[in-house]
Design a protein around this nucleic acid. Structure first.
Lengths: 140, 140
DNA sequence: ATCCCTGCAAACTATTTGCACGGGA
DNA sequence: TCCCGTGCAAATAGTTTGCAGGGAT
């Protein structure tokens, strides 16, 4: 119901493409590229045009319902918005992205508030490296 | 001379496009989009093709001479490589990007090394917010 | 009944690639 | 001399936009 409420509150209509895109984003906890979202949407309803998916993602981003991340250098990915003390660990071998909660972000925010004259709104942390699966695989 | 040495060490030739792109990247401390780099290169030598600029940026990235950052959602930007405990503050009003040194990154790296089973290689921190200039401008 | 949102198709733009020549080693 | 890197032009791919009709309110 979060979706419908947010849409109504911002004078937008509840439509089928918007619901389907929302369902797709929520049914996988994963990060999805635009192309993956388009595919998943088509699986649920082949009639929905990809331009509608793009427009919907843009709208959701404006409403802070989803977040676009440039995790890799290849494509940007989308996911349901989450607090920004959840950071991203991106495995450069298998490409898997996991979330990791940390207080380092809060520490940084405090530090910025005190020391610099920059007012921080959002903090994005991306860690590239090797995930546990790939580490153990390398040991074979 | 860092450029020539690095190129030779990796069996690459020193050519005019490579030198010009390197000069452009070093003459501004700023973050430059690919388009800005192409323009600046053309100002120095209109004969250099943009595809060479792209190829050169790719090569420099492979050699860790420069770094591609997806700071904003619009375009990716390039800059001379720097240690990754230098984080980026991006002003969402004027778009200016500044650097900020912090130990929070080291703290995070330590935390990751101890707690999780993810081996961190690189850490990228992007802070969006309002820079001091824009803050004071808002107070008028 | 109104007009927002959609599907469709075309446009756009940034980046990549194939190829033959010229310049660096 | 050798062959890597270049300029050129065409191809590619992801995303955006104009338009007219249909659906949400």
């Amino acid at each position: 119901m979060l979706l419908e409420a947010t849409l109504r509150a911002s004078d937008h209509r509840m439509t089928r493409p918007r619901r389907v895109v929302w369902d797709v984003l929520n049914s996988t906890g994963r990060h999805l590229s635009a192309a993956e979202i388009v595919d998943a949407v088509h699986e649920l309803d082949p009639g929905i045009n990809s331009s509608s998916v793009y427009r919907t993602l843009g709208l959701f981003a404006d409403l802070d319902l989803v977040r676009e991340s440039r995790l890799t250098d290849e494509a940007s990915t989308w996911e349901v918005a989450h607090p920004d003390d959840v950071i991203h660990l991106v495995c450069s071998l298998c490409g898997a992205t996991t979330h990791h909660a940390t207080d380092a972000v809060d520490a940084l925010r405090t530090q910025l508030g005190a020391g610099s004259d920059f007012h921080a709104a959002g903090i994005d942390v991306r860690v590239t490296g090797t995930c546990s699966n790939c580490i153990t695989r390398l040991h074979d």
